[in-house]
Structure formats: C-alpha cells, structure tokens
Design a protein around this nucleic acid. Structure first.
Length: 859
RNA sequence: GGGCGGUUAGCUCAGCGGUAGAGCACUCGCCUUACAAGCGAGGGGUCACUGGUUCGAACCCAGUACCGCCCA
C-alpha cells in the first residue's frame, strides 16, 4: 500500500464537505425497508422551517448521529429520518413582517394569496438548518425528508382528526383559553411561558356598610367584568355574607357573594373577585354557580364599553381603574412591586390574556392515560429514569388541549358548517355537502408534529417503512421538550397505531450552557454559534465537545477552550495515524505473529475499551464513551504503545506494523460515531477501504484478554515514570543521555531493558562507570551516573515526600487492621487488600529510609 | 405554594459504601526525528453544613443553608 501524504496538522475544512457529499451520493444513509437486517430508526425532532442551527440542535443531532452511525456499523437497517415542521405562528409572523415592509397586511392579500406567499418564502428562505446539518455531518436519509405541510403528512392530520372526531375525542366549546393579543390567536398551555414579573396587588372594598367585603387582585381592570365575589364556605369571617349581594364599584351593578370550596381562605383576605370571562379559575367558579360571563376586552386587549375606560388598552386601563377606585375611597391597600407569575406568549413574549372563546379541543383524558401507561408498563423506557416522574406528572394531570389557531398558515380544521348549524367533519377523501362553509381556523403545529413518528413513515397507509420502522428505536430530545412534544407523540402514536407506542426508548439530554453553566441568551451575549466552531475547530471537535459533556439528562457546559481541546484530540489521532503510516502500519491478520508483551498489552486493553465503549453507548452515556476513548487513544495508544512500537520497529520487529494497524483501525471505527470526518479520512488511509461509515462495529475478542501482559506493562510504566521523575527533579533535560546500570533480573520488567533504556535515554555504562544515584522501583535497582553533581536536596525532598506518604498510608492501614470490629465484620477480600497495602507500605518505608540513609552518607 | 435536581480541585463535571478523579486552567523543564493543536514532571480538595446508620460514609438516612429547573 502506498503511504498517502498527510499534512502535519488535521485541517477539517479540507475533508468535511467532500466526505459528506460522498457519503450522501453513495447512499450510505438511505434505508431499505426490504432488507432482512434488524431495523433501527430515529426520527429527527423536526426543527422549525424558520429555524437555524443552535447549540441545542448541535448536541441533539450529535447524539442521534452517534447512535445511528453505530447502529449502521452494527449491521442494522438504519434510518435517521429528517424533516421540518411548518411552525404556524413563527412562519406566519416572518412573512407578515416581510409584507409589513411594503405596508401590507395578510388581509390585504387575502387568505389564499397569503398562504401562497408563505410557500414561496419557504422555497426561497426556509430550511436554512438543513444545509447546516450537512456541515455537522448528520447522517440522515435525505430521500425521506419530510415537512409537516406536505401532502402525505397533511393527509395524516386530516385522517386522525376525523378519527378523533368520530370517537368523540375532539370537541368544540366555549372556554377560557390563552389568548395572544398580538398574534391574535389562541395558544395551548404549553405555548405559554410563566415568568415572575413585578406587578401590583390592590385590595378593593366592594359594597358598603354591613354588606362590604375586601378583595385583592393583580389585575384591577378585570373588576369591570366581575359577576360575583367568592369565599370559602367554612370561613367564619364571611359566613353571614354568603347569599347576599354587594355593590360592584364603578359599574353600579350588584353581584352575589357565593361560597366555593376552591377559595383559599388563607390567601389575601380570603375573598376573591370572580371574573368568569377573564380567568380560568373564575370561569370554573362561574360554572359551578351559574354566574354570567362578561367579556370586557376585545381581541386586541382593549377595554370595550364601560364608559371612561372604553378604548383603553388593558395596561392603560389598570391604573385608570385603580385611580377611579381610589377617588371613591375603595382602595384599602396597595402593594407595589408585587412579584407574581405572569404568562407570556412563547412566540412573541406578549402577556397572555385569558379569554373566553369558542375553540376546538382534544379530550386528552383517555389518550393521556394510555401515554402514561405505556411508560408505566415499560413499553417505552424513559432515560434517565429519574425524568419519568416529570412525564407522569404531566400526562396524569393534562388539561384538554386547545388545538385551534386563528392563523392562516397551517392545516385547516376539516370541519364544515351547514346553513342550519350543521357540523360535519370531513375525511381525506370526502367532500363536504354543497353550501357548507369550512371552519376558518388551522390546527396547532404540535398537532401535526405529534404524528411525526408515523406520519413520516407513510401513515395512514400501511407502507413498508411503517411496518419496518415503527415503533422507532429511540427518541432523542431535550428534557424541556418532554411535555411539549413527547407526550403528544405518545398519545397520538398509541391511538393511531393500535396501542403501539412510537418509541422504545426516550433518551433525554439537557441544555447547552456556557462555560460558567449559564444559560445561553442573546441578551446576555454568551450565545455560541455552532457554525462558528465548525469553521474554527471543525465539525468533529464541535461534536466531541458537546458529546464529551453529555451526561444523561444533565446540562452541558461548553467553552471555546474545550472546543480547542477537542480539536487537539482530533489532531492527536491524525498524527498518530500519520506516524503509523510512515512506519508502514497495515491491517492484516495477527494469527501466528510472535507478539511482544507490549503488543499483547495494547490488544488486551483494546478489548476492554471496546466492551466499555459499547456499554456506555447502550446506556446513552456519551460523556463516558468519549472520556474512555479519549484516554485510551491518547494515554495508552499514543503515549505508551507508540513509543514502545518505535523501539520494536528499531529492533526490526516488523510485525509491529500489523499490531499498530490493527489497534488504530479499531480505534478509528470506535471513534467514528463521535468524530466522523477525521476518522473517515484516516480509516481510508490506513485500510484503503471504501468508507468507515459502512465498516463493521468492533466486537471485543476475549482471546486477546491478557492480564499478565497488562501487569507487565503496568510495572514498566511505573518504573519509567519513577525514573522520569528523578530525571526531572535532577534537572536532566529530556534529550540528555546518561549512563545507567539496571539490575532487573527476576522482575516483571526483566525483558524490557531495551525499551526502558530507550524511553529513559539511559546508555549502557562504559569503562569507569561511577553511579551518582541509586533508585529502587518495584524490585529494580537503577544506578545512574548523572554526569555531574547530584542535587542532593532535590533528591532528599522527593524521598521525604514519598516517605511521608508511605508512613501516612501505613498508619491508616494499621489502624484498620488493629480494629477488632473491622477484622470481624469487613469482608475477607477487603481485609486481604488492606493487608497487602500494609505490606507495600512497610516495604516502601524500608526502601525509602534506606535511600535516605545512603544519601546522608554522601553529604 | 407544590415537586424535582444540584452543592466534589480556580472553572466545568465524573465518581455514589472500602487508598479522592478527568478535561481545561496553573507551576517547572523541554523545538527528544508523529504531533509545540506537542512531550516530560509537578502543585492544588476538612467531597456545602449538622446529626444519624455502619467496622468503615463524598457515597446511605434525616434535617439545615444556598443554587437551579419544572408546575401552580
């Protein structure tokens, strides 16, 4: 094999794009549902069509790519299915902003033209993230790329809507929903973000004289819509008032005082104002007591009617109402600032307004129960298991899901209304009766996203993909999406697929944070762009940095320094392989070779590392897998085996090339799922093969397990390290050769004199050899002529330090052995270990004391 | 207010009953012919606090303090 010319540094930019294009054009990532291999499938959580790649995606994608690349190498029929969702509100907002530049609104265009315009935007500007996924190296099957608004997926939406409707699980009702006064649409509970905001708590006296009561509120303006005051039935303070009416200030209306179990007597005055049209709890109270609902705001959050307040925005109305009440002497107390939780639109951050409105809902009761049961009975496993509780908390107490949105971009609700109030739900191949009018609203984006694990595989058709790849193997996502999306997919998957859950495992990871563990945010200025890292450090380094921090379910802190460290690691592998190739490393059979202890050691270690890496991958312990491979590659292969191999090669042990090739080739395969680009380049150079993407995953071969060789090399390492320490203490430069006499017959390292002399730059003593120092390590005596005056002080310092440590150890261990309880109750193996430590410590003490005495004699 | 998680080296995190670890940062010495994106050596921790269980606790239990997240 010819040795390719590799530059002395790994330059990611030169290999990444060509490798990726080759992978795709070779069709490595295209799954075949007709194969007989075991299926392995992951659906990509679809990013927004408006989205761009951020660190959270980079982590999520790195994990999925690692899992699917390994599965592919394991010989599984592997499908990683990509796609995007249509992001109703976000996308509509983007296009509306574009129109606004020309002074237009969507209403100027009309619905049809507007939707056409959105499709046009998608074609021109949407899906930037897909190009960015290629930069990261995502091995997705682009031939199966899906979009939630595609025809097939839209058909799935209509199909399941009809099925749910016919089963009575979708209904239309007037309820309090979360309303965004800016987006002019309803939102589901999960599209509302709660933050602790500063507001005010105002206590207002309703009524007068004997019939008067004080209520407290953070939203004083809503008092205009109050239709009752509620107190707890057993609250002695107010019992006499229950059933009476009280005068509502500013309005002249009289409202009843009702008793309701849900009032908390301990909160505030124990009396609450009831505004059924503008508060979900009040709505429930209103229902229980048949109270009227008075809507006092329009869809923009502007007060309607009510004299002087008419036309005021809700936030203008608040102080105006308080001022008017104060003028009437109604304000009993005011607390400002008063910090309380306020809901905001997750899309535009506007304060959400609870609003009474006619909307479509999913009755989630039976669906959520099934979603919980699938995890409870183990059909779907949540990993790490601690997070399952959060899932249960959510699905076991889920409110009905408001699915209608007052938008134009999305799947239009397939319900048509007849002239006499008829309501017809229309399936995919059905026609509405003539003269019927379709509901103007569209469905929540999460409604179609909830179908993702099966709609993308062809449902409702029983396609080959669906048969083969459903249920999918693993869902990888952040724990923050557990409720948003996972629960929805579980509900719909179980419902549509006859009780088969959409995933066997849900593997959750955390958020990516900055180097101080702070959340990345634009306002804080600590956002890192993964593409910037890919440009500067390479895709592999970016991925490795994220994966190396990815402990299951835990957040990942990253910084530029760590990315540089990962780049250095890639470079290390690069140079190790370069060295091996320069020395003729090759892949071939190891049968019949006369392996040295060093060979047997590294081969033995390789088997342990394969087994450990496998175990880590199986449990989604990516940080562990990275750490393991990092240390094996750097500390064992590069630092020790390569140095020992140099010695072997110089001794003419040509088989070393095969061992080098074998170990590196396996290491590159092990690393490939984590750092695909550099491993591809090097693996091809080492093997001359087509691609590591389709190479088999390493399997540990216990025939190579060799504890004796491991012990032998450990002894060698101890000796070498100890003498290096001496050299360093004595100020001997690494390159400086010194004469030394080694007495090591009968020790574990007896056969390694050449390697020891080479690694330590120790020359064979010549005529008139006069050692200036004598060291004893593990039974080996090393006499060295330091070629000058020995630094006795440095040597004494080191020996004394070691002696102190040995004495401390001896004392600790002696205390244990002298403890009757310990001797009686501790397990035998522990006692044996402690005894061994005691013997070692005693030997160390004797040796060190001897060396110190010898040193004293020379002063 | 309810629930969950965390508190281990300067920073970020592993370890989860039997001799305190990693990466980065730091100190010293080296352009030793794969790699200075490197090599060798080294310093650094009463494992938040208080009790308890145990022969033995960073690890198990209880409580406290602080931090974070989710839900209301």
């Amino acid at each position: 094999m010819t040795t390719p010319e590799l530059p002395t540094q790994y330059i990611p930019a030169e290999v990444e794009a060509p490798s990726y294009e080759r992978w795709v054009s070779k069709g490595y990532f295209v799954a075949d549902p007709g194969s007989s291999r075991e299926p392995y499938c992951i659906v990509l959580p679809p990013p927004n069509v408006t989205g761009v790649l951020h660190m959270g995606h980079a982590l999520d994608h790195s994990i999925m790519d690692a899992l699917t690349r390994r599965a592919r190498m394991q010989g599984k029929e592997t499908l990683w299915l990509p796609g995007m969702d249509h992001a109703g509100i976000a996308t509509q907002n983007v296009v509306e902003r574009e129109l606004a530049k020309d002074g237009l609104s969507r209403h100027d265009l009309g619905r049809e033209a507007f939707v056409e315009r959105v499709w046009q935007w998608k074609a021109e500007s949407g899906g930037k993230i897909q190009g960015q996924m290629r930069r990261l190296g995502d091995g997705v099957d682009w031939t199966r790329d899906r979009f939630t608004m595609d025809e097939g997926l839209s058909r799935a939406v209509q199909t399941i809507f009809k099925k749910l409707f016919d089963d009575g699980l979708i209904y239309r009702a007037e309820r309090i929903i979360n309303w965004c006064v800016r987006c002019h649409t309803a939102l589901s509970d999960i599209e509302v973000e709660h933050t602790d905001d500063e507001g005010e708590l105002v206590s207002i006296r309703y009524g007068s004289g004997d019939v008067s009561i004080v209520v407290a509120t953070t939203r004083a303006e809503t008092m205009l819509g109050d239709t009752a005051v509620a107190v707890h039935p057993s609250d002695e303070r107010y019992r006499h008032l229950i059933g009476q009416e009280v005068e509502l200030p500013l309005t002249g209306r009289r409202i009843p005082i009702v008793a309701d179990e849900h009032v908390d007597p301990a909160f505030g005055t124990g009396a609450v104002k009831v505004t059924p049209a503008h508060d979900p709890n009040d709505f429930e109270i209103g229902r229980r007591h048949s109270l009227p609902s008075l809507t006092i705001m329009d869809e923009r959050g502007v007060i309607t009617a009510h004299g002087p307040f008419e036309g005021l925005d809700r936030f203008e109305a608040r102080p105006a109402v308080v001022a008017a009440l104060r003028a009437e002497g109604r304000i009993v107390a005011e607390k400002r600032p008063y910090v309380h939780a306020v809901g905001h639109c997750s899309r535009c951050k506007t304060v959400v307004e609870p609003r009474l409105s006619l909307q479509w809902f999913v009755n989630v009761g039976p669906l959520a129960k099934a979603a919980g049961d699938a995890v409870r009975d183990g059909r779907t496993r949540i990993h790490p298991p601690e997070l399952a509780k959060r899932y249960f908390d959510w699905v076991d107490d889920m409110h009905d899901w408001c699915i209608s949105r007052q938008l134009w971009w999305g799947h239009r609700i397939p319900v048509w209304y007849g002239p006499n109030g008829e309501v017809v739900c229309v399936g995919p191949d059905e026609q509405p009766p003539a003269g019927y009018v379709q509901d103007p609203d569209v469905l929540d984006t999460w409604f179609s996203s909830g179908l993702w694990p099966f709609s993308t595989l062809g449902w409702p058709e029983r396609t080959a993909d669906l048969e083969r790849f459903y249920p999918t193997s693993v869902l990888v996502t952040g724990y923050d999406i557990l409720f948003f999306w996972v629960a929805r997919m579980m509900m719909f998957g179980l419902y549509a697929m006859d009780g088969q859950p959409p995933f066997r495992v849900v593997a959750l990871h955390g958020m990516v944070r900055d180097q101080y563990g702070k959340k990345m945010s634009k306002s804080f200025g600590n956002v890192v762009d993964p593409l910037d890292w890919i440009d500067r450090f390479g895709a592999d380094a970016t991925r490795f940095t994220l994966l190396r921090g990815a402990n299951p379910g835990a957040d990942v802190a990253v910084s530029e320094e760590w990315a540089a460290g990962s780049r250095n690691f890639c470079n290390k592998i690069w140079n190790a392989t370069r060295f091996a190739l320069m020395n003729g490393a090759a892949v071939g059979s190891l049968e019949g070779l006369e392996l040295t202890a060093a060979d047997r050691w590294i081969l033995s270690r390789l088997q342990s590392v394969i087994a450990a890496a496998d175990a880590a991958f199986e449990e989604f312990e990516f940080a562990k897998a990275c750490d393991l491979l990092y240390h094996f590659a750097w500390d064992e292969v590069c630092d020790w085996y390569l140095e020992l191999a140099k010695v072997q090669l110089s001794q003419g042990l040509d088989h070393t090339r095969l061992v080098l090739g074998h170990v590196l080739e396996a290491l590159l395969r092990l690393l490939h799922p984590l750092v695909p680009f550099v491993t591809e380049e090097l693996w091809r150079a080492v093997t001359g093969g087509e691609s590591v993407v389709i190479a088999p995953w390493p399997v540990a071969d216990q025939r190579y397990a060799d504890p004796a060789a491991e012990a032998e090399i450990a002894a060698l390492q101890e000796l070498v390290t100890e003498i290096r320490r001496f050299r360093s203490d004595q100020g001997l430069k690494p390159s400086q050769k010194v004469a030394a006499r080694l007495a090591m017959s009968g020790t574990a390292v007896a056969g390694h004199e050449t390697a020891i002399r080479s690694l330590l730059r120790l020359e064979t003593p010549g005529e008139g050899f006069t050692p200036t120092a004598r060291l004893v390590v593990g039974g080996v005596t090393v006499e060295i002529d330091t070629a000058g005056a020995i630094d006795v002080a440095a040597e004494r310092k080191r020996l004394e330090k070691d002696l102190a440590a040995a004495r401390k150890e001896a004392a600790q261990v002696a205390a244990k052995l002298g403890n009757e309880q310990f001797m009686a109750k501790a397990p035998a193996d522990v006692v044996a270990k402690v005894k061994a430590r005691a013997e070692q410590a005693a030997a160390d003490i004797a040796r060190l004391e001897g060396q110190l005495a010898e040193l004293a004699g020379r002063e």
